[in-house]
Nucleic acid binder design. Structure first.
Lengths: 336, 336
DNA sequence: GGTGGCAATTTGAACGATCAAATCGCCACG
DNA sequence: CGTGGCGATTTGATCGTTCAAATTGCCACC
């Protein structure tokens, strides 16, 4: 009776074919224990033969859930394909949890909040992943007020004591490890090149450098450089540090972009080897694109994605679990 | 009566508040001409006051459409953040057309087709964008047989006469322009470095080089190099070409990765200027990451995305419009 | 003043699934 | 032999929207 086209097999069609009621078919799929084994087998055969797949819109309507996670993406800037890689991990993690990732790109900045609200109110998504949390991000309290489920990738800098759920990677630890690595390779004067003060993650990475240097009683005077993310400006900043009387022999950097700049500033010696050893952050393609390849600190993006999805799905499913912060450790990828 | 929580304002709530029936509210939103101006105003006020937004699942169920476009993403390989950039353009274009982008990442290769089918059968998406069309891609006939709407970014290489709809960028034209540019700058011996024969787009780019060189009566013997996408192998291949008695003074390349390899192989002269001039393809961050920055051929990704979305939405909306191919032109971004 | 026509609005049904409650068949037990 | 209980299955209602058809109110026209 119902449609015969590819998309048109409904639960009633299956019920008719198997000689049972639609609820029994539903039970076979959602509560198999309630159904007698042979009935279940018969129903399953009918499902197979008709190629039945439950209609998602109907399920969503009934269950008041879309099983979609919203993610805002912005025009790509910078050299890292960070989002590219995180997106894959996130999509895979969401898929494993029975969710899909739904992307949106607000056209104007001031409509961004409205778009978030709309997606929730229309039931298009069940919650959000925020992968671009900024210092004192005003979205966080705004979401919290409205009971909009969300999880941050990145600590809620400047509002750490708020009721927010997040997953982050310990940047200070990563940089600390990088300094250890360089010291173990004989370096004593290790410089830091990264963002100017004000970005939470940048400040933290710089602290990791200070901590490790301090632990080894090494001097840090004049060994710090800051600039925006950009190869050219990073190279300039690194040159200034290298021009000093007692220049560094190595750099740890806040990003691979800064690191590439430092490498360019250092140049190569007669044997084609870099004059300064540089460790980047993010292990982006830039780290292997440059020759010889560069060491970099890799964030465990798969793990981050799994944890983010796990936290978000429990929050979405209504259990008002308390806010939770998860800190993961990055890993130094040593090259050459 | 109905829910009072954020997500719970229904069309009936609005109708009650405005003193009309639910269908009138629906008409105000979907067919304003049918409603008397003052009634419409009253309804709109009620919508505003209650913050009503139509439930997407209910609309989807009723309209038998999800207004979602499916896109498969795979684990990122290579140095380009191509997908990153295209994804943004695509999301923005979809949004402008009233659609969302829904991502999925099949875990195993052999389940990929099943995942596509599932997404369509469950009504989770209305159609697909294929951004990774390979030569003789078996997905294309498979989709066509099943009447699954899709549009390719990239010509259906090896099955150009099939009933497929696609948008592509004329790579031969781009490379041709690059050769013209180099010749105008005084180069006579322009080499080509790109993929081995067999990838449709790679073969085509090489043809563009041959065509332009031939038009100017320039020799191409020994000036062609092929290798997989990778900086190290590209550098080796370029070195072999440069080691010849009459080496090239410039390269046009199939990708920015090949181009970076060529630049590394060429090295810098005493003044820090590249010994060979290189033009890449894709204008990825790699082009500006390398110093001095590199010229590259930019694909009009925004335009591609708009056309892809336009074609897909018309196909989705049931108009069985004939298959259509759209060819766009890339643009040389000359640097230094 | 009855009727036809038309614009504005309402009612009933459907989309396809799931939950809750009702019903059925069967067996055991007093 | 009637009844209680239990597992298996079915029926009715609902989620929130839109389409199609029915209804209402109003004016013009004969």
């Amino acid at each position: 009776m119902s449609g015969r086209d590819a998309n048109g097999v409904t639960i009633s069609d299956v019920a008719a074919a198997a000689g049972v009621s639609r609820q029994t078919v539903s039970n076979v799929l959602n509560a198999p224990a309630r159904v007698a084994p042979q009935t279940a087998a018969r129903v399953r055969r009918a499902i197979e033969e008709l190629g039945y797949r439950p209609n998602r819109a109907a399920q969503n309507l009934r269950e008041r859930a879309s099983r979609c996670i919203g993610l805002k993406i912005a025009a790509p800037i910078g050299v890292s394909n960070f989002l590219d890689r995180f997106l894959y991990s996130l999509t895979a993690a969401a898929g494993a949890a029975g969710y899909h990732l739904l992307l949106f790109a607000p056209t104007a900045v001031d409509e961004e909040l409205a778009v978030y609200e709309d997606l929730i109110r229309t039931g298009t998504v069940d919650g959000f992943v925020l992968a671009d949390v900024s210092a004192r991000d005003r979205r966080l309290p705004w979401f919290a007020e409205r009971d909009i489920p969300f999880v941050c990738f990145g600590r809620p800098w400047g509002q750490e004591d708020g009721p927010y759920t997040w997953v982050d990677v310990d940047g200070a630890y990563g940089i600390d490890q990088a300094v250890e690595h360089l010291i173990a390779r004989g370096h004593q004067r290790v410089a830091y090149l990264g963002w100017p003060e004000g970005t939470g993650f940048g400040d933290e990475r710089r602290k990791g450098w200070l901590r490790a240097m301090g632990r080894h009683g090494l001097d840090t005077d004049g060994l710090i450089g800051v600039c925006a993310e950009g190869v050219a400006v990073a190279a300039e900043a690194a040159e200034r540090i290298l021009a000093q009387p007692a220049p560094p022999t190595a750099f740890v950097c806040g990003s691979d972009t800064h690191a590439v700049g430092a490498r360019l500033a250092g140049g190569l010696d007669a044997n084609g080897r870099p004059r300064v050893e540089v460790v980047g952050f993010d292990d982006s393609p830039a780290a292997t694109l440059i020759s010889p390849r560069m060491s970099s600190i890799r964030q465990p993006l798969d793990e981050v994605a799994r944890r983010v999805v796990g936290l978000l799905t429990t929050r979405v499913q209504g259990s008002d679990s308390p806010p939770e912060g998860v800190m993961l450790r990055p890993e130094l990828v040593a090259r050459e």
